[in-house]
Each structure stands twice: as structure tokens, then as C-alpha cells.
Amino acid sequence: MDIPRIIHSNNKVRGMSTSDIDELAQFQVNKNRRYTQLYAGQLEGDYLEINLGKLQVFREKLNVGALIEATPASNFIPFAALLSNRDDSNFCGKHIEQNAILQATGGDWDVNFKDHLNVIAAVFDRDTFAHDIHLLTGEEIPNDWLISKACLTDPLALTQYATGVNNIINVIQAKSEVIKTENSLRMINDTILRLAYNVLKVTTPCTEKRVNQSKRCEGVRQVMDYLHSYGESVPTIPELCKIAKLSERNLQYGFKEYLGVTPVRYLRLLRLNGVRRDLLMNQSAKNKVVDVALNWGFIELGRFASEYRQLFQELPSTTLRKAN
């Protein structure tokens, strides 16, 4: 029997490559998984999970047809997207249609497939997820989100969710130090929350009331004043909704009316300005561009450098050389 190869990068990143299907189940702590190989082939399984505080993301690959059954703990709320072919796959006894998000949120669930599996998922802490959705919408989580089933959603939102979470996994796998700073963790959690919300709000919309313009403008000013004093803490969008006393949609309307940009774009511009300010103030030459960028919550460093250059018409390394 092949010996499974287990990789422990640190206490936040765990991975396994194995040909032993039972080892794969045992490796996934508190998920109560059971695997049964259904079709012929020499099994190869790959599993990678990244723990981000109250949120976990994972990617799992199997090269032969199998049945996976699970009874996750009640405090877990997983939402999964298939990167592999859906034509031969069933979830909770029903065929998985194109553009479907898998809600493994209602206790027992199972998935079976004939060929291979490639899936990514975000697993939220139930209480934290409910709290953040309330901040974003002003409403409670729809009960329909808490039922294990495959739900049709907007194709673009689903693609953005699948590729967004997968890209975050790839970035952290390649460079685990990006999650060592609190601000980077907060930005990653916020990004994944909003990617998931954009998928789910299509399946069962939350009811949101549109408030009047004066209240929206008042909320925007409160957010701007807060960011002027505490922007270096890199607040998340749910936190800004709480400060403004507005749902995300109303906050977005307000920012578009007041500044012509979304709150997400404004926060990103604020963070880029924060990086530039810190680079220019760097008198000791001890800090590197990457350190400053991570401190402001940027983990995709190539994209960061491109956006920085577009905004300020120079590379961040050029700014740093000016300071020194």
C-alpha cells in the first residue's frame, strides 16, 4: 500500500496527497467524511485546506468516480463550486446542473461522480456568517441558504466565486506568509464573504429597503470620516456597513452618488494611498515593498503593483527609492 504524503506548511495550511481513500477521510478534521470508490481506477486524491480564523477554504481533487458522504458539525456552513465536469455528478441525489452552487449547509449531504472531481469550497462559521450577512443586508440569513442542495445562480457570480477562491488558495499555497498579517487575513475573509454573497443572493434574495438619498449621503460621510482616522486598520465592507448604518447595496448607491465609485473601489484606492504614504515615509530602508503591501491587505502582489503603477504612474519600488 502506498504511504500517503502529508504536508504541513504551518498550523494554517494543511495538505495531503494520497492513494488511501480512508486516510483522506481521516485527514479532514471534524467533517465526518466517508469515501467509497465506485468506478475502476488507481485512486489519487489531493486535498488542501487553509484556515483563516472563522473561515476555511479548501480544494479537493479525486481522479476516479466515487461517493463522498458527510455530516459536518452544525457550526460549519460550506458553499462549494465544481471546477470539474458536472454532467456525471449528483448532489444529495439530484443531478448537478450547470451554474449551480452546492450548499452543504443542512446537515447530511453526499456527492457522487463517475469520472473525476475538482471542487473548491469556503466553509464559514455559522454565527460569524450570520452576523456579517446581517451587516451587509440588514436582514437575517434566508432559511433556503441553510438547506443542503444544488442551487442555480448567476453564471458570472459563480465563475467569480470559483476562480476567486481558487486564486486565493493558489496565492497562499505559493506564499503562506501573505496570511501572517491581520490586515491580509481581514481582506481575504471580506473578499470571500462578498464572493459567496454575490452567488447566494441570486438563489434566494435578501429583502432590502432602499433608504432616501440624504441618509445614504450621511452614511457615506460617516464612513469617510472613519476611514480618515482608522483606515490603516483596513476595515471590511460589513464593518463599513455597520458604521454607515446602511446595507451594502444602499452604501454602494451612496458612494456612487457622492464620489462616483463603489465603496469597494474607494477602500482599495485608500489602501493604495496608504501604501504610498508608508513607502515615502520609510527613512530606514529596512522595509520592503512586499511588507508594506501585505500590511495594507494586498496579497496578489502582481495585481497590486499593476494597480499602483496605474494610479501613481510609477512602480512602488520607484517610490521606495525616492524615500531612501
Results as ranks from 00 to 15, higher is better:
residue 54 K to I: 10
residue 185 L to S: 05
residue 217 C to L: 12
residue 302 G to R: 07
residue 297 G to D: 14
residue 135 L to Q: 13
residue 166 N to P: 03
residue 93 G to R: 11
residue 146 L to G: 04
residue 23 E to L: 00
residue 176 S to P: 13
residue 321 R to Q: 13
residue 303 R to V: 08
residue 312 F to G: 01
residue 92 C to A: 09
residue 47 Y to C: 05
residue 308 Y to H: 09
residue 85 N to C: 10
residue 139 E to Q: 15
residue 211 V to T: 00
residue 242 K to F: 08
residue 246 L to D: 00
residue 155 P to Q: 01
residue 5 R to N: 15
residue 126 R to D: 12
residue 293 A to Y: 12
residue 33 R to C: 00
residue 257 E to P: 01
residue 197 Y to A: 10
residue 284 S to K: 11
residue 317 S to Q: 13
residue 248 E to L: 08
residue 242 K to T: 06
residue 24 L to M: 15
residue 46 D to K: 12
residue 288 K to R: 12
residue 319 T to E: 05
residue 197 Y to V: 15
residue 176 S to Y: 07
residue 99 N to G: 08
residue 300 E to Y: 08
residue 9 S to M: 03
residue 19 S to Y: 11
residue 187 M to G: 10
residue 274 G to I: 05
residue 245 K to M: 02
residue 170 N to Q: 15
residue 204 T to M: 01
residue 229 S to C: 11
residue 6 I to N: 00
residue 14 R to S: 14
residue 112 N to A: 11
residue 199 V to P: 12
residue 270 L to I: 00
residue 88 D to V: 13
residue 18 T to P: 05
residue 27 F to A: 07
residue 175 K to V: 03
residue 254 G to Y: 09
residue 137 T to I: 03
residue 105 T to M: 10
residue 206 C to P: 05
residue 23 E to R: 00
residue 273 N to C: 08
residue 125 D to Y: 09
residue 178 V to F: 03
residue 45 G to Q: 02
residue 218 E to K: 04
residue 285 A to P: 04
residue 323 A to N: 01
residue 152 L to Y: 02
residue 53 G to V: 07
residue 63 N to V: 01
residue 165 V to S: 11
residue 209 K to A: 09
residue 292 V to A: 12
residue 195 L to D: 06
residue 277 R to K: 15
residue 214 S to T: 03
residue 60 E to Q: 14
residue 158 L to A: 11
residue 319 T to F: 07
residue 294 L to S: 08
residue 313 Q to D: 13
residue 8 H to A: 06
residue 57 V to K: 09
residue 146 L to Q: 05
residue 49 E to D: 14
residue 151 C to R: 03
residue 109 W to A: 06
residue 15 G to T: 10
residue 179 I to A: 01
residue 97 E to T: 14
residue 79 F to T: 13
residue 10 N to R: 06
residue 173 Q to A: 12
residue 163 T to P: 00
residue 228 H to G: 02
residue 140 E to A: 13
residue 231 G to V: 05
residue 131 H to S: 15
residue 81 A to Y: 07
residue 152 L to N: 15
residue 162 A to Q: 08
residue 59 R to A: 11
residue 27 F to M: 06
residue 6 I to T: 08
residue 79 F to M: 10
residue 247 S to W: 04
residue 52 L to C: 06
residue 184 S to D: 01
residue 7 I to C: 11
residue 228 H to D: 15
residue 167 N to F: 07
residue 128 T to D: 14
residue 205 P to Y: 06
residue 45 G to M: 03
residue 108 D to R: 12
residue 274 G to T: 02
residue 252 Q to K: 13
residue 10 N to V: 04
residue 44 E to Q: 08
residue 190 D to Q: 10
residue 138 G to R: 00
residue 222 Q to L: 13
residue 264 V to H: 10
residue 314 E to R: 06
residue 148 S to M: 06
residue 272 L to S: 00
